[in-house]
Design a protein around this nucleic acid. Structure first.
Lengths: 206, 206
DNA sequence: CCTGCAACCGACAGCTTGTCGGTTGTTATT
DNA sequence: AATAACAACCGACAAGCTGTCGGTTGCAGG
């Protein structure tokens, strides 16, 4: 007797297994056969729920980035937080992105995952850059920042942050720490913030 | 009678065709069959010269980035250029990267080319970041820049520059110009350079 | 009860990459 | 000029991949 589930249940089941496999072997090296074998469903079932392998990836990227983007949105709305705290809060919420898929982050930069990386980056940029840009604009008005290009500064922060903190496996803890400090320092300078103004609130999150 | 060529000739021939195909259809959508059909060689011949499809990509990325990296090196050695001129010169030499493969740049951000993009980025970063970092350190010493993290600033400049100026197809000329200006402005601020100090020398190159 | 539909199945077509034993042209050596 | 050795070349083939499609089965509503 075959097992029937609701579309949503089945979709999530597929995404769960896909996430696990992609984390282990990478996107390119995981086949749709691997997925259906692990779940115990037929080819037709998989393609009943998703139109293609890439569509599975898209849905997975969506699910993986949703948390990060949501918490970034929540943080940016918190009225009792200062702009400094909001900005550093958003950045650190992204660096811990996908608590479930920590493993997947560790091989994000590998060739088999180039597409996954690109899609995640695009998604995060679209979701978070506007929030950061908004924060910078506010900071400009209140006088704690001073830059003529909030939007582009936000983009630069996001793109660099997302690419640079991906593949930190081969770095010593000391190097990691330096890289993080440099990041904050560079943001401060780019935004025309007072030196150290972002470093302090960041410590809340570590 | 079959045609025999030297290994180098044949390799270049393969890379030429690969470049053309990747530019038209993307890396993922181009098969090794497409390549050999277009040249008129057998499967075995292709695999005699390259161990895998990815190896072809690697060689192509190498060839495509070589010019940009070389000219960046040349510029950074030019004694009669100021640090400002060297820095802006390197940046603009990269933005015109691969004059032959302009077409390929236009679809670099598409999903089928994620791997190509990642590999080019990695190559450019490894080749150019040290040069920029060196320049920034020099500028620090001579007093025109002021930053505690030359290496990381260089990395940020490269990564953002490379990602942000890839897919500018859907931007109006006005938007493009603004983005470029913002880039220079943000660099100035991050490096602690005088406002406008980089904008002027940049105009030489346009 | 029965009917319609969503979930499910699995064989199959048509691709793909990479392998391998054998062939042919070239170049160095005698 | 004959020949030996080697690099370049060939193409059939294995193994695996994605996506399709006609048919089946369980469930929910009438």
């Amino acid at each position: 007797m075959r097992i029937v589930k609701t579309a949503e249940e089945r979709k999530n089941e597929i995404l769960d297994v896909a996430e696990e496999l992609f984390a282990q072997k990478g996107y390119d090296n995981s086949s749709t056969n691997d997925i259906i074998a692990k779940i115990g469903i037929a080819r037709g079932t998989l393609y009943h729920h998703f139109g293609s392998k890439e569509e599975i990836l898209d849905a997975l990227v969506d699910r993986m980035t949703r948390d990060g983007i949501n918490s970034a949105e929540t943080i940016s709305k918190e009225k009792r937080l200062s702009i400094y705290e909001k900005l550093t809060g958003i950045l650190s919420s992204l660096s811990v992105k996908s608590s479930a898929g920590k493993e997947i982050m560790e091989q994000m930069h590998k060739p088999q995952n180039a597409l996954l990386h690109q899609k995640m980056q695009e998604r995060l940029i679209n979701g978070v850059v506007p929030l950061i840009a908004q924060l910078i604009t506010e900071g400009n008005k209140s006088g704690i920042f001073k830059t003529r290009y909030p939007e582009e500064a936000a983009e630069m922060i996001m793109i660099y942050g997302n690419t640079a903190f991906d593949d930190n496996e081969n770095l010593t803890p000391g190097q990691k720490k330096k890289k993080g400090k440099a990041f904050i320092y560079n943001i401060e300078k780019m935004l025309g913030a007072k030196e150290g103004s972002l470093e302090k609130p960041l410590k809340q999150f570590f």
